[in-house]
Structure formats: C-alpha cells, structure tokens
Design a protein around this nucleic acid. Structure first.
Length: 257
DNA sequence: ATGGTTGCTTAGCAA
C-alpha cells in the first residue's frame, strides 16, 4: 500500500498538478488539505475519471480536507464528533482497505499569543482526545496532514531563525510529542533519520531556491500497521516549476499484510 | 526593517 498526503493550497488552482501526481505515483490513498472549495464545487468528476473515490469536508475560501482512495471509502466522519461549535473544515476520517485514515489541517496559529494561536493549541488538544480511543485499533490508524508543527531541529533548515514561531516552538513541539506518546510513529523520521527533509517553503523571499524549508506535513501511524511501513519520504520535486503549492507531498509505503 | 507571494475574491484576510 502506497499512501500520500498533500496540502494543495486550493484544489482548483492545483488540479492539473494533482492529476499528474496521481497518474505518476498512483497512491492507493491520498489525503489532501486546504482544498478551499465547497463540497458542491469539488472536482469529483476528473478525480473519478483518474480512478479515485473522494470524500470531502469542504469549505468556501479557506480550509477544506479530503481523502481520495482507489478502493471504496466507508464510515466517513467530518469534524470532531459532537462539536458543533467549530465551523472550520479541518478534519475528515474514513476507512479504506480496513485501515482508518484521518486527513487533518491543523490551524497555523498566526502569531504566538494571538487568538489564532490559542485556537491552534485548543484544536491540537481536541485532536489528541479524539485519537485516544482509536490509537490501538487493528490493523492500524493513519493520521495524515498539515500539522503545522516542525517536531525537531532536524526538520527546520534555519532553526535559529524559526525558533519561537507558531510552527516551531517548545509548546507545539510538546504537542507533537504528545501525539507520538499516544503510540504513533513518525514515518518520515523513522526512514529519513538524518533530517533535512522539508515539506513547506514560504512563497516569499525565495525560500524554495534557498531551501529555507520546514517539515510540517506528516504521516503518523499507530497500531499494527506501524511495523509494516517499509519507506517514507517527501517529494520535493513536486514543489518545483510554475504555480506550485507551497507544500510538497509526503508519502509512505506499507507491506501488504 | 514586520517587508516579500499566493489564492480567493475583488480590499482584505489567511497562510
């Protein structure tokens, strides 16, 4: 099984790139974030023609998360169960091939100390509570997405410049560590322990050509599936060329059990 | 120095 996760920063602006990536890599399951369309505007037809079922939790202008799968998706959940107060479409879960997949777009947080940052911390706390009862499920649980956290100094090209920002500070690193403490493994960390693998580069200040990046997009796996992960990485090439997303896809491979 | 770029929507927000 080959899976991937990509913050596409608008699925309408990125549809050609997405279809090309699906055609070349043919992931069995792909989680998307920041699709930035309502369910009605979601381009289900070209994706169906490309061989993918799609489950969408859409929103106009902002956010929006999706799970694509070559096999059928069942038991779809949108948002945190029982939370009617959160109007932002940032979480969708579905089952494919007997595995529970979650596509998450964690709030960026704006600036440390802002209301947006408080919302980020509360959202991460809610995510942790949501994951707790699922974590040891068989055969496994996969949390994919833009978690907006760089977990380690190895995941930041210029750690001294980024220390203390919403993407890289002690508080959010502790939140990431708390996710791992639930029993998740960080697939890219496990298979690329040397670091220097980034998934996001700011559009500004020539960040990409300077490789001033951070690894903030992740595939975390819990349960029996974790031991079946044979490789994982980030497709930096997908950030190249005209009109890229500011994020690159993260991928992981699992031995079929 | 609080800049710069992109997307959505069309002046301003979010990232």
């Amino acid at each position: 099984m080959f899976i991937a996760s990509w913050n596409v920063n608008s699925i309408r602006a990125r549809l050609d790139r997405l279809l090309r990536w699906l055609e070349v890599h043919r992931p069995d399951v792909m989680c998307l974030q920041e699709v930035k369309v309502t369910d009605a505007e979601f381009p289900a037809e070209p994706l169906r023609e490309a061989g993918y079922f799609a489950e969408v939790y859409g929103q106009k202008t902002y956010n929006g998360v999706t799970i694509l799968s070559r096999s059928e998706l069942t038991d779809v959940e949108r948002g945190f169960p029982g939370d009617s107060s959160d109007t932002q479409a940032r979480l969708i879960a579905a089952t494919a091939r007997g595995v529970r997949f979650i596509s998450a777009y964690v709030p960026n947080g704006g600036a440390v100390g802002s209301d947006a940052y408080q919302y980020k911390l509360e959202w991460l706390n809610q995510l942790r509570r949501y994951l707790e009862p699922h974590r040891s499920g068989s055969p496994g649980l996969v949390l994919c997405g833009d978690l907006n956290i760089a977990p380690d100094t190895l995941d930041v090209a210029k750690p001294e410049q980024w220390e203390g920002t919403v993407l890289y500070n002690q508080e959010v690193r502790a939140e990431f560590a708390a996710l791992l403490a639930l029993g998740f493994i960080d697939t890219v960390r496990r298979h690329r322990p040397e670091g220097g693998q980034y998934s996001w580069w700011d559009y500004r200040q020539l960040s990409f050509p300077r490789n001033d990046g951070l690894r903030i997009d992740h595939i975390l796996v819990a349960g029996g599936l974790a031991d079946l992960c044979t490789d994982a990485g980030i497709d930096r090439d997908a950030r190249k060329g005209p009109r890229p997303s500011d994020h690159a896809p993260v991928w992981a491979i699992f031995q079929d059990s």
